[in-house]
Simulated assay, not measured.
Amino acid sequence: MSTAHENTESIFRLFRALKLDISDAIKDLFPFLEVLRDNNVISDEQYDDFQESHGNLIPLHKVVYRVLGELEVKHDLEALGLLFCKQNMEAYPDLEGIFERFKNVLPHDELHLEEIDRGDLNSQLSLEQGPAPAHQ
């Protein structure tokens, strides 16, 4: 039987392996950055920095990869789940295949994946992680 920590580590190993694929799937910074900023995953300063980087002609996939690096450092399942929120799944259809790969590492005995909206990995990961801490 695996522990929640082992499951979290498996999810983040897969995330690390798929960061490049995710960065290629995201074709525009909107709504990607807004979702992260509005959910306090990145600060307003980080948001502005990422927008400015792209405005300074840094290729989009490199900016997105930097953002994903921030998510990796946080090691926060809720933040990771925001990648697959409804807004992002609709804006970036290429995330669908990546989302399916994440579903393969989630504990099927603990989660009823068929009952959860395909675009709401956040709720799945929240079950894995437990109650979210209060945001300040």
Score class of each variant (00 low, 15 high):
1 M>Q: 09
3 T>A: 01
4 A>L: 05
4 A>E: 03
7 N>S: 13
8 T>D: 00
9 E>Y: 03
10 S>K: 11
18 L>A: 08
18 L>F: 05
20 L>I: 12
21 D>L: 12
23 S>V: 03
23 S>R: 05
24 D>K: 13
24 D>N: 11
26 I>G: 01
28 D>H: 15
29 L>A: 06
29 L>Q: 04
30 F>E: 15
32 F>L: 08
32 F>W: 03
33 L>G: 01
34 E>H: 12
38 D>A: 11
44 D>K: 05
44 D>L: 09
44 D>V: 14
45 E>R: 07
47 Y>S: 05
49 D>W: 09
50 F>H: 06
52 E>C: 13
55 G>E: 11
57 L>P: 00
57 L>I: 12
60 L>R: 08
64 V>C: 06
65 Y>Q: 10
66 R>P: 01
67 V>K: 04
69 G>W: 06
70 E>M: 14
71 L>R: 03
72 E>Y: 12
73 V>D: 12
74 K>F: 05
74 K>G: 04
75 H>T: 12
77 L>Y: 01
77 L>Q: 01
78 E>C: 11
80 L>C: 02
81 G>T: 05
83 L>M: 06
83 L>C: 06
84 F>S: 00
84 F>M: 06
87 Q>N: 15
88 N>W: 02
89 M>K: 07
90 E>W: 10
92 Y>Q: 03
92 Y>I: 10
94 D>S: 07
95 L>Y: 01
96 E>I: 11
96 E>V: 14
98 I>V: 09
99 F>I: 13
101 R>Q: 15
102 F>R: 03
105 V>R: 00
105 V>Q: 00
108 H>R: 12
109 D>G: 02
111 L>G: 06
113 L>E: 12
113 L>N: 08
116 I>W: 02
117 D>S: 14
117 D>Q: 11
118 R>L: 12
118 R>W: 08
120 D>L: 04
120 D>N: 14
120 D>A: 08
120 D>M: 06
120 D>C: 09
121 L>H: 00
122 N>C: 15
124 Q>P: 00
124 Q>S: 09
127 L>K: 13
128 E>A: 13
129 Q>I: 02
136 Q>M: 14
